[in-house]
């Protein structure tokens, strides 16, 4: 069998989620081909070729693929899908956007957000915000799968796969056009690959206090900053910092939840962290039920003390 892994990248670099999805693809088995579709994407293609376990890197380099719009990308993937038994992508906003479109055009079901591979056609995935875990078997001729990146370790470097150009003629989709993107420069580790995450909730009362309290602590720990939905909705933090059922799912070594009560939707995004610390003034907050270490008190007093104690 052969698997096509759809790479997520920004043309220059490969997203780490791609290396994590590769680990899942290797568990599905067979030869792995990686599709790098973009514009001037030799950098990303070179990085894909270095990943251990990749048999071939296929590069579709075309102006229409400069931005990962779902319409041309899905059309291209479907045109290439013939020889492949499985089509795999990370379950990031990139993969979630394009892969269901691919699955529908192929008339097959998609298995979303898998956390384990049981057999080439059988997968484990969380449902109900992670409050139930389902094992499903695909009965279609091809499987289309998106991979929860935090559930798989990134594949290592050490490969040297051949890089081949493929035609991008099938990448049509005039009905959609890229207008603009606002992608702030990251000042600290990316949320989904950080070893430590400091996360804030509604308790911070303003965007200024959210930053003033959490940034010194995150800097000292070399941590990424996350947020609960309440903090994002209140405008204290940007949307791409949201951890939870419908935001980012993370599993760092250490997750420090500050002023977060612990709604089930938030827990769904972080409860697989190795060590969880909760700091909250409400001793009854549900977050304490899953925290390894709980500290009851006011975040405005405790966080500066914690930073000093480190």
């Amino acid at each position: 069998m052969t698997t096509l892994l759809i790479a997520e990248h920004d043309n220059a670099r490969l997203a780490e989620a791609t290396a994590r999805a590769l680990t899942a693809a290797l568990e599905i088995g067979g030869g792995i081909h990686v599709l790098v579709a973009g514009r001037d994407c030799a950098g990303a293609a070179g990085a894909a070729a270095k990943l251990a376990g990749v048999a071939r890197v296929l590069v579709a380099d075309d102006e229409r693929l400069a931005h990962p719009l779902a319409e041309p990308l899905a059309a291209l993937i479907v045109a290439m899908a013939g020889p492949y038994d499985a089509l795999v992508a990370p379950a990031t906003t990139f993969g979630k956007n394009v892969m269901p479109r691919v699955a529908a055009l192929l008339d097959v079901a998609q298995v979303s957000d898998i956390t384990a591979v049981v057999a080439p056609d059988t997968f484990v995935r969380p449902i109900y915000a992670g409050n139930a875990i389902e094992t499903v078997q695909s009965t279609d001729a091809k499987t289309v799968v998106t991979v929860r990146a935090s559930a798989f370790k990134p594949a290592a470097d050490g490969g040297s796969a051949p890089v081949e150009a493929v035609g991008a003629g099938a990448a049509t989709g005039e009905a959609s056009a890229f207008v603009s993107a606002e992608i702030p420069e990251l000042e600290r580790p990316e949320l989904t690959s950080a070893r430590v995450i400091v996360s804030g909730g509604r308790a911070f009362e303003s965007a200024e206090r959210f930053r003033a309290c959490l940034e010194p602590l995150a800097d000292k720990l070399g941590a990424a900053i996350g947020a609960s939905r309440a903090a994002v909705d209140a405008g204290y933090a940007a949307n791409d910092l949201q951890v939870g059922q419908t935001g980012k799912v993370v599993a760092p070594e250490l997750y420090i939840a500050c002023g977060i009560s612990g709604a089930i939707q938030h827990l769904a995004g972080m409860k697989d962290s190795r060590v969880i610390v909760a700091i909250n003034k409400d001793p009854e907050a549900p977050i304490f039920q899953i925290a390894d270490y709980g500290l009851v008190g006011d975040v405005f007093e405790l966080l500066p003390e914690l930073e000093k104690a480190l």
């Binding site: 139930a132 039920q289 914690l306």
Partner: peptide, 29 residues
């Protein structure tokens, strides 16, 4: 198109301990 083979409860996380001060927290971590 999919067969649901089983649905299970997720592994439960054990509740941990309370610490009294940030210094104690850092020591435990």
């Amino acid at each position: 198109r999919l067969k649901v083979l089983k649905v299970e409860a997720p592994p439960a996380r054990r509740a941990g301990i309370r610490v009294a001060t940030p210094a104690e927290l850092v020591d435990k971590l």
